[in-house]
Structure formats: structure tokens, C-alpha cells
Design a protein around this nucleic acid. Sequence first.
DNA 1: GAGTTTAATATATTAATTAAATTAATTTAT
DNA 2: ATAAATTAATTTAATTAATATATTAAACTC
Lengths: 391, 391
Amino acid sequence: MQRGTFQLMKSVNKSIVLNKIRTSEPISRAQIAKETSLTPPTVGSIVKELIEQGLVRESELGHSSGGRKPTLLHINTNSLYVIGVDVGPEKVDCILTDLTGEVFERTSYLLTRPLTNEQFLAILKDNIYNLIKESQLDEEQMIGIGVAMHGVVDVESGTSLVAPILNLRNVPIREQLEKEFNLMVKVENDARAMALGESWFGGLGDFESTVAVNIGRGVGAGIVLNGKLYHGAQGMAGEFGHMTIDINGKTCECGNRGCLQTLVSGEAIAERGREQLKDHVGKLTGKDIFELAENGNPFCIDLLRDTGRIIGIGLTNLIHLVNPSIIVLGGGVMLSEKFIMPALLEAIDERVLTNEAQHTNVIVTKLGNDATILGAVSLILIELFEPILIG
Amino acid sequence: MQRGTFQLMKSVNKSIVLNKIRTSEPISRAQIAKETSLTPPTVGSIVKELIEQGLVRESELGHSSGGRKPTLLHINTNSLYVIGVDVGPEKVDCILTDLTGEVFERTSYLLTRPLTNEQFLAILKDNIYNLIKESQLDEEQMIGIGVAMHGVVDVESGTSLVAPILNLRNVPIREQLEKEFNLMVKVENDARAMALGESWFGGLGDFESTVAVNIGRGVGAGIVLNGKLYHGAQGMAGEFGHMTIDINGKTCECGNRGCLQTLVSGEAIAERGREQLKDHVGKLTGKDIFELAENGNPFCIDLLRDTGRIIGIGLTNLIHLVNPSIIVLGGGVMLSEKFIMPALLEAIDERVLTNEAQHTNVIVTKLGNDATILGAVSLILIELFEPILIG
DNA sequence: GAGTTTAATATATTAATTAAATTAATTTAT
DNA sequence: ATAAATTAATTTAATTAATATATTAAACTC
């Protein structure tokens, strides 16, 4: 049980100050005091500690309107670094960023199958070693490794329980990486990491709740409430792809009928296309549909519009149940944004019950593929910056 | 912004102690210290304050196993009282309870329509005055009035925005009752109040998240996370009834097609019955279907089973998205529990993706109709007892 | 260059915790 | 029956980290 202690009092204030600097840099001590209604001495002593920890730095003096010039404070971008890893079905991407999420180094490695747990872990380690080496930075300056992994992840232990496409089971990622690099390691499911990445780096502003939906090979969502990932009781909150929306519909790979995924995943779109475009050369993919639509193929345009409509129906269910402040859409299917979004927004507008909820922000990610790997980085950053919320 | 202050530290600990007493009474100071890992002096001084405030009382000495006998502490049940009001489509119920939710007085008033805002408010006031008078208690001993109101409620201002069946709009319930009784007043939507009531008084144990679903005239849900109601960005979280599960289904009163409500509400069941049982005398209601099923009518038994299956499909969507620790079902339709539950549980078991989530607790309310009005009471109790959570 | 303004720090006070000691009340052992 | 041990609750002192107030530092204004 989290008691009311002096450490609590302090860490609450420290978190308030650090987050104020993060979201409003450059900012002076005096300004922080004003905006947080903490007293100047409190802000001063906290800032002193943050500078000692290397999280914050001072810069030049700011402008004064009559009086001593304020010393401006910044998040320190050249002393501490974070490593983010994105394990997708086909490749392992690694990035090295500073505390603001700016990327300094990148590696990418194509996975070949089959793959044993040991081989997979060796690849992870190699790539991270390479990344650090390339960056020419000291290992001392790293604070942690965040891993976004497709499939089912046990967050507590940092284990990949099932990664269906890579055919891996029970990989103790955290244990192994912690031992190897002696750094904090966090592991999270990729859709959820994406949601966190959007919420931290998506430039969305200060929303109470964010849902990020990935529509690609599969359909998944992550829910961020008050800046933190919401996992649910058994860690399966956000399983958006297997929401039944057509009780008599097609059978899904999960065994149920009418899952959203059977209607709007990349493969589902391609399949719907194949039924109609039988004269198309080669195996038709989702990407082909998009290109055909771009070239004015009316059937493909309609197909993508209808996909947008169905996604909109699914999102309406999401709005009615979870009612997030903002929904961010990403994934391969959303590359067809141009055809999908108008129909999608129209469907939501038409279906949502109340006027206020009609104004739920629904946008396409501005981070592209990087949302997930930046989310992996956020898993570590959140340990430093996470607002400690009271309520 | 909630800063880290001495008051915060104190209120956190006070809340921990009070809730420990509430959930584990009778309990001694020493035991509280052990279980909360607060120090004995801290517990002692907080208990002293709680006793002064009239929230806690001491009782006889407990058993000792060698040493001074412990003084046992209880929630004080005979000094402070709460009023709960449930405004349904047909009647206004009021109860007066002590701090443990035990009911001391009850009134019920049948509403007649049409009804103006003024008439409605007058009825509310009259009933509350009556309740207090009957109880022969002092108005000083009341701490607040909680109101559960059907329809759309603005929780901030305590206003009933739309109450469709009573045909009321913009009734400033909180403002009016606060002025009249000079007590704290909280107003909440009835499905959400029900969820809070279940979570507080349902004897469910200590769950992280509870969803209560009311299936009756309409279908609605309330979500309780960490003991507190989750409203969502525009206060519409839990609009479970208008979840699309049959994209090509019947048109709902909301204008959309295939809402869960069009398949499983009391009226929906009755309608499905009518199509088949044309020789039935009089207008067939949901209740009739239940009675016919009880008497062995195979069509009605199947109809209720199928209803259970469809509710199960809806709940599976809920589990996949929100993944609550426990789901509590109530409302008129659940009176047919006997026929509905087996099919419902089977559908969930069949459809939920992971083994762990298959074990989501799904139960029928033990509070019956009182869940909602006890939820109204909880709206006030939560102000006294609510755990202040850090994280 | 004196006076005013603003920023940052130093000092004193205060709230509420923890640790250690004390007092209180029983049970158990001899 | 009395002493020793055990447990409960309270008191006292020390500690932490806040706030309030005063002071120092560094501008700008005229």
C-alpha cells in the first residue's frame, strides 16, 4: 500500500516540476513556481536535485521586463539516453534517443525464420550492442531499454508469452537484457506501446485519455488513461480487432464470427478485392487495392470507403464504451487514409449518440511507423517523467 | 494541480486508515498499523481525529493472546446518515442509510406524467422531507444526498440534461436540493450509480475494476476503476446498449442498425416472442416470455437462451476492450437468469481470446433493485471513504 | 546612480511523519 | 500470588520537506 510519506510528498512535487519543464521548456524557476503554485524555494531545491541527476540543465538567461534575468531550464539532452526496440513480425528495429525522444542512432535487422528463443535473444543483444557502439556513447549514459513486441506480453515479468508470427513462446526478454546490459528493461505489447508513443510524442496536446488503433496485418488498440497504459485485469484491454460487429459474419482466425478484423485488416481488404478483381495479375495485396484506387478504379475506391465505414462503426463502439478524448489511427491500412478517413468520420458522426461525443478527435498518426518504437522509448521515459497522479 | 503537501500526506493516510476500518471492522489500532505498515503513533492520531469527526467509534475490548487487550474500532453507525434517491422512469425511491449502507427508512412515490421541472423538483423535495421526518433523526446528522437519475446527467453541475421517458430537460437537481437542504448533493446517471453500488455494497471483494450492466427496458453499463466511476471524456463511457454487434441488423431507436439493445432489451425479447406466439392473448411482455419458459414452453426457453448467447457476445466485446476484473449483471431481463446465464457464460467462454480472460467473473447482482439506490448513497460515502490513490 | 522590479537563495517556522521510549493491561510461568 | 513476558496504546524526540518571510543578486527605468 502506498502510504503518505515525506518521500511521496517530495516525489509528487518533483514529478510536477520535471513535467512542467518537459512540457514548457525553456522555463525559469520563477515561472514554474507561478504555474504550479509551488513556492520558489521548493522549486529551487527540486531543480537543484534534477540538475545533479543530469535530467535538467540550465541555459542562457532569458528576457527580463525590468529585474533580474531568469535562468532558463531545459531537459538535458546530452547526458542521458534511452534505447527503444521494436520487434515486428519481420524485423527488429532499434533506436537510441535522448530524453526528448530525438533519435541519434538507428539499426534494423531482418528476421529469418524459423528462430529459436536463443537465436532471437542473441539477435536482440547484438543489435543493441551495435547501436551503442555506433553511437560512440558510454554505456553509463544509457538509462534503460524499452521493448515493443508483437504478440502477448507479460508486462510484470517482461516476458513474451506468445509471438504467433515469429512462432516464439515464453522468451524472458527482460531477464536476459537486464543481465546483459545492467539497465532497466521494460517490455510491452506493440499496440499498447504505439498508444503510449502517440500520447507522448504524437503532439496531441494534453488529453486525459488516448486510444491508438493499429490497422494493418491485424487490428489492435492501446488505451492510455492519464498518461499511463491501461492494461485491464488480465492485460488484454484494447483487443479491438476481435470485437464482434457482425454476429453472422465471416469466421475469423480466432474462431469467432464477424470480428472487426475479418472486415478491415489488410488481408481482409485484399480478399474482398480478389473476389471481384479476378483478372488481376498475381496475388492481390492491400497495397495493390490502394494503388488501383489511386488510379481511379471505382470498385477499389468503394471498397476502401466501405472499409472506412466499417472501421467507423467499430470506433463508434469504442467511443461508446471507453469514450476517449482522442483516437489516433495508424498501421498499413491507414496509408489509404485519403479514401478511408472521410467515410470513417462520416460513419462516426452519423452513429455516435450525443453531440459532445461526436466531437471526439479522430486523427491519423503523424508519427508513421515510429509511433511504436517511440512508445518503446516512452516505457523508459515514463519511469523518469511520469506524473504521479493523486485522486 | 494537486501538489505534494502535508495535507496530502495526511489525507492519504487518513483515507488508508478509514478504509481499513471500513473493510476490516472490528479492528484494533495495532492491527491497522500492522496491515497498513503505518506506524502506531500515526494510526493513533488519525483514529483520534476520526472519532472526533464521528466517523469511527470504539467498542468493547477484543481478545488478547497475552498482553493488553486491543480496543476495537468500528465505523460509527449511529451518528451520521446519508440519503439516496433513485429516479426511475416510473417512480422516485428514497432511502436513508447509515455509513455502512444499512437502510433505516424508505419512501416510494409513483410519478404521473406529464411533469414539469418544478413539479418534479417539488416531488423530490417532499419525498426527502418525508424521509427525514419519518426517521425522526436530526437534519444535522445527514451528510449528503445522492441522486441516481435515468437519462443523461451532467455530473459537474448535477443537472439532469435529458430524461427521455419522463420528458424532462435541464433540471438543476443539485442546485435546488443544496439550497433546500443545505447538504452535499451528488447526481449521477442510474447505470453508473448501479455500478458504484455493486462495487461498494455488492460483496464482490476487492476488485481493481468492476463493470455493472443493466439489462431491462434499455441496456446500460457503468465502469468503476479503482473504486471510482469512470466517465470518459464526454461522460458517455459505458454506453453498452448501443454497441453495434450486427452490422446488418434491425434499426434501433437511436437510428443505427444492430445495436445490442435491439436484440436483448426486455422489449426486444417480447417482440421476438410476438413474432412467433401470435395466438397469445393480450400484449406479450418480457415477463410473459419468462413465465412461459418457466412453464416449459420450448420456444421461449430457446428465445431466452439465445438472448443469453447474444448478451455473452456483447460482454465478450466488453471484456476484450475494457477487460474488467468482474462484471455484474442486473435489470429486469436478468430475472430470467436461470435460462439466460448458462448460454451467456458459454458464449463468453467460447469466444474470449485468452485463457486468463476466460476466467473473468461474470455474476448476477445480489442486490436486486437496490443496487442503483445504494449507488446513489455511495456517491456521498465515496466523498468520506474514497481511497486516495497514488500512481 | 538611486529606486524599482524580478529572480533566486537563505533562514525560520510548521506539519506530519518515524523511531524510540514509556505506560498500560493482560497472559503465562513458576 | 508474584514475576516475567507479551501485546496495545501513548508520549516524546528526531527528522523530513513543505511554507512563509527575509535577503541577496541582477537587471531595468529614469
